[in-house]
């Protein structure tokens, strides 16, 4: 019942969003496209952070891998976009499974260190592998097909892709896998002694999260028509992580609001200050200390099970 309501509300929202190009404002369409892409990016990360309690500091790596793969398939090999995007997802899935294999083996601390380290490795490769990525000059002139060339058509395409992808992620979050991730976060020992293969659950979740970040990156490469190594840099990972935390860890829709809020804030402050990272840091610190459940928490959303309370002890038996 509640789920049906949510779905109906979202369908209405999507229809409403499809009307944005009618406003006639290219800027608005452009901004809305960017927000959509980051909504997908943040929602994919939320699967790890919100449901699994695994803080990835290198999620941008998969955004960049998807972006470069898509750009290379489109531009270098002339693959049509409806094959290039899925192709980019496959590439990202394979690489996230490999990287994830190392990241989920040990504790959550190792997970955080390793995601940051591998994120920086992807950045270094994008930076130095000039022949393929263009290095720090960037991958320029991404071949966007004719039918996606106008801002409006690309916006509508992105809306469709993001809506479908978010729907898939919703199913994943509410699937046995998603529920088991929450159980592992809360009490890994117990989950293991129920017969759950905890590492494998985490690895598959990691791979799914990476794959959808890759899809967001693929869209982004067409949106920007270029891609730079910076898209894998840890600051990019930080930004999307802050979107998730600001929106509300563990609430499915919170991070979408977080993405919206952060991008709008970025636009607003672009002229006022060049110290965006410091602003991000302050937002993050204020969120952590004063409303740990983020924007979603302000509206009474239930925090994810397994997050330790103010004084509660997490069971470690």
């Amino acid at each position: 019942m509640k789920a049906n309501m949510q779905i109906a509300l979202l369908a209405a929202l999507c229809l409403g969003l499809a009307l944005v190009p009618l406003s006639g404002s290219t800027y608005l369409v452009y901004l809305a496209t960017q927000i959509l892409i980051f909504i997908l990016f943040a929602t994919s990360l939320n699967l790890l952070v919100g449901y699994g309690g695994l803080i990835s500091f290198g999620h941008a790596a998969f955004f960049a891998i998807g972006g470069y793969s898509n750009a290379i398939l489109l531009t270098t090999y002339g693959v049509p976009v409806l094959l290039a995007l899925p192709g980019a997802m496959v590439v990202t899935a394979i690489l996230s499974a490999i990287i994830g294999f190392f990241c989920v083996r040990l504790t959550a601390y190792y997970f955080s260190m390793l995601t940051l380290a591998f994120g920086q490795l992807v950045w270094a490769v994008a930076f130095k592998w000039r022949a393929v990525t263009g290095g720090d000059d960037g991958f320029l002139r991404v071949a966007v097909p004719e039918w996606l060339a106008t801002p409006s058509s690309f916006y509508l395409f992105s809306l469709l892709v993001v809506a479908l992808a978010v729907a898939v992620l919703w199913v994943v979050a509410h699937s046995p896998l998603g529920r088991t991730m929450m159980a592992i976060r809360e009490n890994e020992t117990r989950a293991g002694f129920l017969g759950v293969n905890t590492r494998l659950v985490q690895l598959i979740t990691f791979t799914i999260a990476g794959t959808f970040a890759g899809l967001a990156g693929g869209l982004f490469s067409m949106f920007n028509r270029s891609l730079f190594p910076n898209s894998a840099w840890w600051l990019q990972s930080a930004e999307v992580l802050i979107m998730v935390v600001l929106g509300g860890i563990g609430s499915f829709f919170g991070p979408m609001v977080g993405a919206l809020a952060l991008i709008l804030l970025n636009r607003l402050t672009l002229q006022l200050t060049e110290y965006w990272p410091a602003l991000l840091a302050i937002i993050l610190i204020v969120t952590l200390f004063f409303f740990p459940n983020g924007i979603a928490g302000l509206f009474g959303s239930r925090p994810a099970p397994g997050l330790r309370d103010e004084r509660g002890e997490k069971s470690d038996a």
Binding site: I55, Y109, L241, I249, I285, R308
Partner: peptide, 12 residues
């Protein structure tokens, strides 16, 4: 608090 808050704080 949960360790993720400490991680996020030092990251900030």
């Amino acid at each position: 608090r949960d360790q993720i808050y400490q991680l996020l704080f030092t990251f900030a």
